[in-house]
Simulated scan of single mutants.
Amino acid sequence: MTSAASIYQRLAQPWKHGAYEDMRNIVCDDALDLSDKKLCGVDFRGAYFKAPVIFSRAQFQGVSWFEGAVFEGDVYLDHAQFDNDARFEHCHFKKNVHANSAEFRGVASFNHALFDGTCDLSHVVSYGNFALENTRFSQKVSFDAAEFMGGLWCDHCDLTNPASFSESQVHGRLWLRDARHTNQPLGAEAFNLAFGYIYM
């Protein structure tokens, strides 16, 4: 088991280009509160978080790898800033995800992720590609006022419950092939504005 305090101690190191803390497959039993912190690069692939994870207003200065991580509690990414790629492929979010106004300056990949609870992606800004290939949202999700500057990839994305896209904008490629919304095809009309190529 790895304590929340020891995780912060390691991630509080000054960021160096290309460097990251190897925290693959750790198990964290207690709540991890890194809100308002500046964090160096980290590899959390395969990590298991048994309590809430709070990254509100945190700045991830380096790479942020979470592939295959499991989150038992709520995850707070509201107003978090990812200066490089944020990789959440194959993650399992068992409770609610709060990512209101999160900013992704690189690629934001949630491919093959499972969201068992609600997910708030309202006011998200993504400068790189925002990827939701084979991603499953089991509960309500909000994309209200989100801006996808580098495009939005939704191949085989499954939005089981009604999703909200009010005032959302996609700048760049919008890929919706085989995407489902409440068991119906997800169409470009769901988005407020789409400026680039649309693939249905």
Rank of each mutant, 00 (worst) to 15 (best):
C119I: 00
V70H: 11
A145I: 09
W65A: 14
V141S: 00
W175P: 03
L121I: 04
A163S: 09
H112N: 14
D30W: 05
Q9W: 07
P185C: 10
F88R: 04
A146Q: 09
Y127P: 00
Y8R: 13
H98D: 04
N111S: 15
A163N: 01
D120H: 04
H156I: 03
V70T: 09
E72G: 00
A188H: 12
S168H: 10
D43S: 04
N84W: 11
F60E: 01
D155V: 12
F130H: 01
N192L: 13
R87D: 15
S138T: 07
D85W: 14
T135G: 07
G117E: 00
V70C: 06
V124N: 05
F49T: 01
A80C: 03
D155I: 12
R177D: 07
E67G: 09
D33E: 12
L34K: 02
I7V: 15
V53I: 01
G117D: 00
Y197D: 14
V63E: 11
G68I: 08
D78C: 10
S122V: 03
A86W: 12
D78S: 14
E133Y: 09
A86G: 14
R87N: 15
I198R: 14
P185V: 12
D33A: 07
D43V: 07
L176H: 11
Q169P: 00
N183F: 08
D78E: 12
F82R: 00
D74E: 14
S35D: 02
C157H: 01
S122L: 08
V75S: 05
F71L: 05
K37P: 00
F130I: 03
L159W: 13
L32T: 05
D74H: 08
R173S: 10
L32M: 13
S56R: 09
G106R: 00
A99K: 04
D144F: 11
A31S: 13
E67K: 04
V124C: 09
A188V: 15
P185Q: 07
E133V: 07
L32N: 02
V170S: 07
G68S: 13
K37A: 06
N111Q: 06
R180D: 06
G150W: 14
F165Q: 02
R45Y: 07
Y199V: 10
A86T: 05
A69M: 05
D36S: 08
F49N: 01
G187F: 09
A131E: 09
H90W: 14
R136W: 03
A102N: 06
N192Q: 13
F71T: 05
L132R: 04
A69N: 03
D116F: 08
T2W: 14
S3T: 13
C154D: 09
L11M: 11
P14L: 14
K94V: 00
L176N: 02
K95S: 00
W153L: 07
S64G: 08
Y20I: 13
L132I: 10
D22H: 14
D74Y: 05
F104W: 06
